[in-house]
Amino acid sequence: MAPGEVLPAAQVWTLSQRWYDNRLSEAYQGRTAAQVEEIFRSLGMTSAFWQYTGPADAPQK
């Protein structure tokens, strides 16, 4: 298996709910790297793989 991180599908479902919950909202205007890291932290995704080294206000998907 290639390098990277492997997560149980159940955890990815929780991640999906937090990540995409408001994606269809008129008010959604993206999020910053700092906001992304907060989501990752809330799910225990704290390894170097999930850390961002660029500007904290860089736009995210």
């Binding site: 298996m1 990277g4 492997v6 997560l7 599908a9 159940a10 793989f49 850390q51 660029g54 998907k61």
Partner: peptide, 18 residues
């Protein structure tokens, strides 16, 4: 999500997604 033993493999680190 219905119970499953499946996993999801993330290949690219967050810092390099874009």
């Amino acid at each position: 999500l219905d119970p499953t033993s499946a996993v999801v493999h993330f290949v690219v680190p967050f810092a390099r997604w874009y």
